[in-house]
Design a protein around this nucleic acid. Structure first.
Lengths: 319, 319
DNA sequence: CTGTTAGCGCATTCAC
DNA sequence: GTGAATGCGCTAACAG
């Protein structure tokens, strides 16, 4: 049993080449003859060589961790199901990179926080969520090229299409007075669903009933009550988050309104327990794991195709 | 504007001491005279010095990331609400350490995986969840002292007391035929709640009705149906996970059984949406953020008091 | 208590 | 295509 792990020097020696050559073939960059390439690979195999991630990061100057910065008014956004799920997904995606993710909250006015992050030499990349339209352009120079964004303009779900399908479904169900509990106005990602809603209601000749929410169920309760107070004949409520939808369901239950008989409800995101509530929530499911992984890879400099991720409707009991 | 960040050498030069002394005071370890300490601190302040985490980790040989390994039969345990929440909490707790967390699943038989982790020189610490009783003792030597465990024997919630309070509550509600949907038998953390249940039913002269579940709502549905088939007069179902409880609620709804009138139900953990379902779930809330932070700190070698974290009942609508 | 001397393990200039 | 130096930024061992 070897007491200490084989290093690059050991591999090089065994392969009969210099450490530089060994480094070139093992790190995949730089020229190398087929012969020495094979020798190095074989030696690495035999010695069970594993590069030392930290040394590699120091020498390469790349930093060792990804920071996931979530912008929101509330600090407890870090407990939001979407945030925890995305964080876990990044943590899983970073495993093969020998890196990890750190999580932090930043307020709506976060220029100073971003500057601080820009000065962190241990930072490999930054993933940002909760941005508004102006932020990506206002990033500190040092962060440029190593920042990815989750939501509008970055790794994003096709929320316009997703909400569109849900709204269409409600329409086909015979609903004609559909309200939307939208996301907060300061959030860039809020725009697409609202646009989709406006477009569909306009073209179908339906009234537009929009109320702002956030991503909490408490706000969903309040918003649903507001909707029914203002437009008592509402027969469907679409939302842009499951938490909001569940809050709305509670409000409706409290008002003695039957779901979906009197009012249909749709969520968005398909949180883990959306299928486990009763009535089970109709919503749209999103590949959050893939989105988070794409964001991480993009932030780390890989070129990932900038496609919108699909939003697939899941029709359960509430709509 | 300085084009490159101040390094330790710059600080030392400005403070009129050697880099070694500067390192000693800035890293907090090693002796230093009050005079040079003050000088170094002042210089660091003026230069806005930030240590380079990666260099520090390389020189110190400490590794740069924490791996959270979750042991379970299913690979999609990584999407479990508790796991994602704990992962996010660790990611947040690691921010000040300039480290990050990576997430990985390991199967029930994970000796090989642990060996592989032991060979990773970038690993600062390991946090393990889903262990059985034998695992902590069977850890590879290299992992010793830098591994912490979440659940029985490590950073754990006082689940015996927590379940005990819930059961007592059910008893005080007049329930006398209380079933328990327990955790999987291979899990060390499953033991305490079962013991508490057995103790309480025995001392109160109640029948013991135990069924095994896991942490999915699907299994909760099945288990609840099994309970009612086997003991049709059951008037309460206690569980050890909210997902299980929500599954049970669905099963009961499907059978036309009223909650809590006919059968009361309790969950465990207070997932974000437990309060947002209707009927709202009675459960116990746990400081997962603190637990995860304690696990991380412990794994990194800090001495954290080994206390059980409190389990606080939250009585809502289902019990 | 302090400075000097060596590395930590690898990537990357350069010459050859 | 290859090897010999040099450096990444800091900590740790030693001698003073």
């Amino acid at each position: 049993m070897r007491t200490t792990r084989a290093g690059l020097a050991d591999v090089a020696r065994r392969a009969g080449v210099s450490p530089a050559t060994a480094s070139r073939v093992l790190s995949g960059s730089g020229p190398a003859s087929p012969a020495s390439r094979a020798a190095v690979l074989a030696a690495a195999e035999q010695l069970d060589y594993r590069p030392h991630p930290v040394a590699r990061q120091l020498a390469g100057g790349s930093g060792s961790r990804v920071v996931f910065a979530v912008r929101d008014e509330r600090a407890d956004i870090l407990r939001d199901p979407f945030v925890t799920r995305a964080t876990a997904a990044m943590a899983a995606a970073l495993l093969p990179y020998a890196m990890g993710v750190a999580l932090r909250h930043v307020g709506l006015d976060c220029a100073a926080d971003l500057d601080e992050l820009a000065g962190d030499r241990g930072l490999a990349a930054l993933v940002l969520a909760g941005h508004d339209r102006a932020m990506p352009a206002a990033l500190p120079p040092r962060l440029r090229g190593r920042t990815a964004v989750i939501g509008a303009g970055g790794a994003d779900v096709d929320s316009a299409a997703g909400v569109g399908v849900l709204l269409t479904h409600l329409y086909l169900l015979g609903r004609r007075r559909i309200a939307l509990i939208a996301g907060p106005a300061w959030l860039a990602a809020s725009a697409a669903p609202v646009a989709a809603y406006r477009e569909l209601t306009r073209s179908a000749g339906l009234p537009a009933r929009i109320v702002r929410g956030d991503f909490t169920s408490a706000r969903g309760r309040v918003a649903a009550r507001a909707v029914l107070r203002r437009w008592p004949d509402t027969d469907a409520i679409a939302t842009v988050s499951d938490a909001t939808a569940l809050g709305a369901l509670q409000a409706l239950a409290g008002l003695g309104i039957r779901v979906p008989d009197d009012v249909a409800v749709t969520g968005f995101d398909d949180v883990p327990l959306a299928s486990a509530v009763s009535p089970a929530l109709s919503t749209a499911t999103h590949p959050v794991e893939e989105i988070a992984a794409a964001a991480v890879r993009s932030a780390l400099g890989e070129v990932v195709p900038v496609t919108l991720f699909p939003s697939s409707p899941v029709f359960r009991a509430t709509a």
